[in-house]
Design a protein around this nucleic acid. Structure first.
Lengths: 143, 143
DNA sequence: GTGCTTGCAAATCGTTTGCAATAGC
DNA sequence: GCTATTGCAAACGATTTGCAAGCAC
């Protein structure tokens, strides 16, 4: 299901490839850690010194619009991105800030809620917040 | 279930009342439209000219921490707030920007996903995005 | 060469912070 | 009087915008 390349992932979603777009997509596909635009920029910039943050933002918006990535608003501080567009939930650890993928029992999210007639759903998301296993085991006071 | 007063809603959640806190809580309880901090400030400021935006932010953070309100990160532009803390989902219309409440079929959200062992969930949210009935019926090109 | 893409710098805007003034017990 | 709360102004930081230069077909 994930046996595709950055290039194919772009073209299959109708995104014209460029060196910058390939780099962003490749980073997203290799780092399923839900990076923010800034993280992606900082990671790619050393190897691609002419890359600008604007281009990273432009590319991420384009990928989201074309369905090649999804944008997560789970962290109120900044939007982050995920190249895995299959249905799954996300868990934000409020101690370490990491976002974890969580499998769903039922992949038809719309069935969870009573969406009123006439409403057309285009995206859906399930977000959890709490303390992850690693942070909990390190037994902080507040954990 | 909603037959309480702003004052009681504060004290029941361990929040010491003040004129400003009461005003914010009252606004939230009377306007279940998921306002942002700025909307609340702009709405209250005319009648309470000394109210500062800082206090609105402080109060909203306090209410959220104490469980007297929930904060929604459905709109990536700004956080918004809801005094209805009972389990329900939210639908953001991407045309008009309105956030709608959506009842859930199953109120135990945690059962929807396979949270790994050791993870402790503190908050959960289901967000939908799309086009609401009103915007859809106004038949815009992109709708 | 026409149109899309990139990148820099500046602007924008939601939110937070530092700190002094104020209010409530 | 002591502590918590408020409010102003400034800082901050993520994201967007304007626009000129570059690239591709």
């Amino acid at each position: 299901m994930e046996a595709t390349t950055p290039l194919r992932n772009l073209t299959d979603h109708g995104v014209k490839p460029s060196a910058q777009r390939l780099a962003v997509m490749e980073y997203l596909m290799e780092h399923l850690t839900h990076p923010s635009a800034d993280e992606i920029y900082c990671a790619l910039h050393p190897a691609m010194p002419t890359l600008s943050k604007t281009t990273v933002y432009n590319t991420l918006r384009l990928l989201t619009e074309k369905g090649a990535a999804i944008q997560l608003t789970i962290d109120e501080r900044n939007v982050c991105f995920d190249a895995d567009t299959t249905p799954h939930a996300h868990f934000l650890c409020t101690r370490c800030g990491k976002v974890y993928d969580v499998p769903l029992r039922e992949t038809n999210l719309e069935r969870q809620a009573c969406i009123p007639p006439g409403f057309r759903t285009e995206q859906e998301a399930i977000y959890y917040r709490g303390c992850c296993a690693r942070c909990a085991s390190q037994g902080q006071a507040d954990c």
